[in-house]
């Protein structure tokens, strides 16, 4: 079995900050993913490798290139303002972990 070792040009010297554990922790919190310190440590080098890998894009000069969000060559179609949906309370709540009297229920939000 042959695995391709590298078909990608080597990355340029890093211009972006490296992933430290503090950053991983912050990102995990932003993404609402609970992580033990051990997990944070195991994610750190993997994320860092991925970021190093994608950094090779910086070697391409993209001045004046318009970013492309979606390739589909059509115009956005619009919907008419007619009532076609809703009135599904039972179905909306059918998969809810917790509900009562038509409401979804979550642990109390303190403001």
């Amino acid at each position: 079995m042959t695995t391709i070792i590298s078909c990608i040009p080597p990355a340029l010297p890093s211009t972006l900050p490296v992933m430290d554990t503090k950053t991983v922790k912050k990102v995990a919190s932003l993404a609402r993913l609970s992580m033990t310190d051990q997990e944070l440590e195991s994610y750190r080098p993997k994320l860092e490798n991925i970021l190093k890998f994608v950094e090779q894009l910086s070697e391409v000069n993209t001045d004046g290139v318009e970013p492309l969000s979606n390739v589909v060559d059509i115009a956005l179609t619009l919907r008419t303002d007619t009532l076609t949906d809703g009135d599904l309370q039972q179905k909306i709540l059918a998969n809810a972990p917790e509900s009562t009297e038509g409401f979804f229920v979550v642990p109390k939000v303190v403001e």
């Binding site: 992933m19 990102v27 993404a31 993913l33 994320l47 910086s58 391409v60 290139v65």
Partner: peptide
């Protein structure tokens, strides 16, 4: 892992360096 990478790449300060850059390459 992918959620983490995406969250990081979109977060303040890195958006242009990662996301916008990748979109430009996408066009090329």
């Amino acid at each position: 892992r992918r959620i983490m990478v995406g969250t990081y790449a979109l977060s303040a300060g890195y958006y242009d360096a990662y996301y916008v850059k990748a979109q430009k390459l996408r066009r090329l």
